[in-house]
Design a protein around this nucleic acid. Structure first.
Lengths: 355, 355
DNA sequence: GTTAATTTTGTGTTCGTACACGGAAAATGC
DNA sequence: GCATTTTCCGTGTACGAACACAAAATTAAC
């Protein structure tokens, strides 16, 4: 364990005082060209790293961190992201953080807009963004950029922005994998259905679209693209949906596999269970409480999951590292692993994230 | 963010000095019954937590941590565990740690014994153990218990010991899941083979045995137990092995699925590729470099993985928490998730752990 | 009751970084 | 060249917990 280099050591090596080194490290200015050069030379030689502990305790300032994500419901996707963030807040409870959660309705652009406007007026030191609406997010990021406020994305990345980090998934790969899985779960001559859930506002989630593309491409590459049907059902009118879905199944008896490109798989699984339909495999996304139930009772064959807790956890960790270490690192885009969850490995997927 | 209570606050509330509170918190003794009571009352009221940062920097002592695990090879299972530990060491580089790695040959009990003897004589403050030989491990743990040295298990737990934490997998569940997967990858009337890899010393790894049990139980529950054959091959004599395996396949043309209960899947995958055998699905364990290759080129259908990096990472983290927070927590047994890795989600499984 | 031994307690210093403050040096104005 | 501003730089204190040390209070010894 090599002894860590301290500010004092650097000061000595550069022939200046600790105050000067501090000024250089934090870009506080008021340093002569000569001293600056001396210090920077030493720094590049020895590879100094802040002692995060001392940094944390001697910091007078309280960091204000704004978190702008869709409404987080316990046991659902954004709830898990929030859990991860909360977990990190606790883990770093010794860093003075003031975290302001600001939830918006992911199906309502006005709600998003007003939430994002609020962020700016809070004057935070950093922001964690769960983006849904592209233009709103871009506007927010532009504003943050011009105020030099760092931000991190969770769940997705909006192009044309410059976050310090992002945590997201390759949704196309998710869809492709989902196709592959669904096929292995079904008989050789099966037909398949993509079930879209609809809502007022007609989200057109780009995540779902990407997934669908990957899914179809898998079947295309297997020469089975004509085996895929598509239909939709409404989240808001369960009875109507049930009828529609049952009709659809009756009209397409060749279908033994269904894919849902968001976390609503459990809705279908409940309908199939209730009507005692056992020859259709379901695959869907996100380890929500409802889907967990479906996996457990066998009505859902597999769920793909993108570690939302871990995303939230690391997002806050990135922010802390940036604020404390204050280093001008370049953007790091983290692509999360795609976990495949089936009945047999479900029980072990609750506890862990971080790390 | 509630303001953290500080030792000074507690001292004030209990009407004593910070020194006394410190003595109570660390069981240093020399505290009168009256003061003790006063402090403990305040403590139970306010729920004090150490500030880990200040704890870390003001600690004069350097903690000596011994790590006794099987020889870690880069890109293999124990290498990944070591990577996780190293990662945690870096993450906590501000805590004064002196980590002593002590590797042993997991196929040689004498090597293990001498390594473990060395541990005791090092007088460490805590130990991370990757157990292989039950009796040797028990002996080591008994010794550590009597010296009140805390220890953590990675990879497996040895019963009859009292670690502060353990990180392991439900190997039976792994085997069961492996069976389920292998079946979905193969045609309906297929036969299956369990391929055991042999070595001098004849390890009889209890992990493999548990996995095999789960695997067989899956097929039993599916009413297919008579479809399973078993054979073995030698790791040390590749040519002989290849011949043996090819003969076995020739004699059992009904076999379309093979399971290897340890990380040696790649050996089989190479033999099958080389001989252009394409109608046999392989499943195995551990995301080693070799297996990664097999997954990528399609010669291995799936790998189950138990997050070795995460195990190592958390093991060290547990130790640090124990040493710094000094709290008498009870044993926590962590069961790792079982990740299913196939070609489509492989690319995203390298970066993340900890978490 | 006095002295010595022991227990109990408070104070002060340390860790490495952040940052305020005031003094020294350099630059500017006239 | 002198006064004034501006830039630059070093020192000192704070952060919160750990621990050394010495002072104070208690107990033991005679």
């Amino acid at each position: 364990m090599a002894r860590q280099v301290k500010i004092k050591d650097i000061a000595q090596m550069a022939g200046v005082s600790v105050g000067t080194v501090d000024r250089v490290l934090h870009n506080r200015g008021n340093v002569s060209a000569k001293s600056l050069k001396a210090v920077e030379e030493v720094l590049s030689e020895v590879g100094y790293r802040y002692n995060i502990h001392t940094s944390a305790i001697s910091l007078r300032k309280e960091y204000k961190i704004a978190i702008a994500i869709p409404t987080a419901i316990k046991g659902e996707y954004w709830g898990a992201i929030q859990d991860g963030i909360t977990h990190a807040i606790n883990e770093y409870s010794d860093v003075r953080l003031n975290c302001l959660f600001s939830f918006y309705n992911q199906f309502d652009i006005y709600s998003c807009r007003s939430s994002f406007d609020g962020i700016i007026s809070q004057q935070p030191d950093a922001v964690i963004i769960g983006p849904t609406f592209r233009s709103e997010t871009k506007k927010l990021c532009a504003e943050l950029d011009s105020n030099r406020i760092p931000y991190v994305f969770v769940d997705a990345v909006i192009e044309g922005t410059s976050p310090i980090a992002s945590y997201s998934t390759d949704q196309y790969a998710c869809g492709y994998l989902l196709g592959r899985l669904l096929r292995t779960f079904t008989p050789a001559d099966s037909e398949y259905a993509i079930m879209s859930s609809q809502r007022i506002g007609n989200e057109r989630s780009s995540n779902s679209l990407e997934r669908k593309k990957g899914f179809k491409d898998y079947f295309r590459s297997a020469g089975l693209e004509e085996k895929i049907k598509e239909t939709s059902f409404s989240v808001l009118d369960p009875q109507e949906s049930e009828k529609k879905i049952l009709d659809f199944i009756r009209e397409n008896p060749g279908i033994h596999g269904m894919a849902i490109m968001n976390s609503r798989g459990y809705i279908l699984s409940e309908i199939l269970s209730k009507n005692n339909i056992r020859d259709i495999s379901l695959v869907s996304f996100d380890l929500t409480l409802n889907n967990t139930r479906g996996i457990r009772d066998g009505s859902i064959s597999a769920i793909l999951c993108q570690r939302p807790e871990l995303q939230g956890f690391h997002a806050l960790k990135s922010v802390i590292r940036r604020l404390l270490y204050n280093q001008e690192e370049e953007t790091v885009h983290h692509i999360m692993p795609i976990d495949i969850i089936v009945r047999e490995n479900l029980p072990y997927y609750r506890e862990f994230f971080e790390m």
